[in-house]
């Protein structure tokens, strides 16, 4: 466990709280992609299957896993009940089956082992790398975002970006290297690069997030 890993996990945790806070404070889920949230729930459910047999291995990991699964399920529940009037299926239209299909194909082609758990783990890693696309696509269609929504996206993107120095650290200092997670994590971070740029040049300078 190194500083980058802890900061990455905290950033992930913070992103979820910001999302819930966004819905609570604006009483709306406008600007949030339900498709992306459903993909994340799929990611957590397929990756954290091991919670049933490694529950006591690391209380830290197990509690984070539970928090990610439950909070994302709760977010989806809120979006589909309390805040459903703000859902806009006309804007949230990214073809998610291609993402699920692509991740499934990569998982079958490159798992570490051919076991159900390892193939699902690999699937979850690839799916996570592209799960933000419906959200970014939606952002592009609306052309602007509430500031709190951009903080959510920044924290969510920063989480995987912080895992990259963590992987480098582990590779050089512990001899641990995880090629699937690393390649997918780099792709995931690259997908955020445009967003990071606009967040840095606009939101951090007190301006509204608007696409050029």
């Amino acid at each position: 466990m190194n500083l980058f890993r802890i900061l990455g996990d905290l950033s992930h945790l913070v992103s979820i709280f910001i999302l819930l806070q966004k819905m609570r404070s604006t009483r709306s889920c406008a600007g949030i992609s339900l498709r992306t949230q459903i993909l994340y729930l799929m990611v957590y459910c397929t990756r954290y299957l091991d919670i049933f047999w490694t529950f006591n291995a690391s209380l830290y990991n197990s509690s984070m896993k539970l928090v990610f699964i439950l909070s994302t399920a709760y977010t989806i529940y809120l979006m589909r009940t309390v805040y459903k009037t703000a859902l806009d299926p006309q804007i949230d239209t990214f073809a998610t089956y291609y993402l699920v299909g692509g991740a499934g194909l990569l998982a079958v082609l490159f798992p570490y082992k051919y076991t159900v758990y390892e193939v699902l783990w690999s699937f979850s890693i690839w799916l996570e790398s592209v799960a933000i696309l419906p959200q970014l696509f939606m952002l592009q269609r609306t052309g602007e975002a509430e500031t709190i929504t951009t903080h959510y996206l920044f924290a969510l993107g920063a989480y995987r970006a912080l895992y990259i120095p963590n992987w480098l650290y582990r590779w050089f200092l512990e001899g641990h290297f995880d090629p699937i997670a690393t390649v997918a994590g780099i792709i995931q971070t690259l997908l955020y690069s445009d967003f990071f740029y606009i967040y840095y040049t606009k939101v951090l300078k007190g301006k509204k997030f608007e696409l050029p």
Binding site: H12, R47, A57, N61, K65, Y163, N166, A181
Partner: peptide, 10 residues
């Protein structure tokens, strides 16, 4: 270093 079984990251 102790090698953890399975995947030790989130």
């Amino acid at each position: 270093a102790k090698k953890a079984a399975g995947h030790d990251e989130l």
